[in-house]
């Protein structure tokens, strides 16, 4: 069974690229400087993990 995306805050640059690839609008860039995940909408598809330029997202 698929899990949910988990953000590693140590690594996340809040660049917003993952927000632009999420097909489920589950990610948001709050005030432009903090990445937020809506766990309800996340399907664990892993697209954000695949994209992230710094490896800050893992589906767990």
């Amino acid at each position: 069974m698929k899990g949910k995306a988990a953000i590693n805050r140590e690594l996340c640059m809040a660049c917003g690229g993952c927000v632009g690839v999420c097909p489920f609008t589950a990610l948001e860039l709050e005030n432009g400087n903090k990445l937020d995940l809506d766990g309800e909408s996340c399907t664990g598809c892993g697209i954000c993990e695949r994209f992230c330029p710094v490896g800050a997202i893992k589906v767990v």
């Binding site: 660049c15 917003g16 690229g17 927000v19 632009g20 690839v21 999420c22 097909p23 609008t25 992230c52």
Partner: peptide, 26 residues
């Protein structure tokens, strides 16, 4: 509102980037 665009989605236009059609930059 940039690559993380939400506004157009609110108005019903899908602006989601396919993985094939976006570069990861650093």
């Amino acid at each position: 509102d940039g690559v993380e665009s939400k506004v157009a989605r609110w108005a019903g236009i899908n602006t989601t980037n396919k993985l094939m059609d976006i570069d990861a930059g650093f």
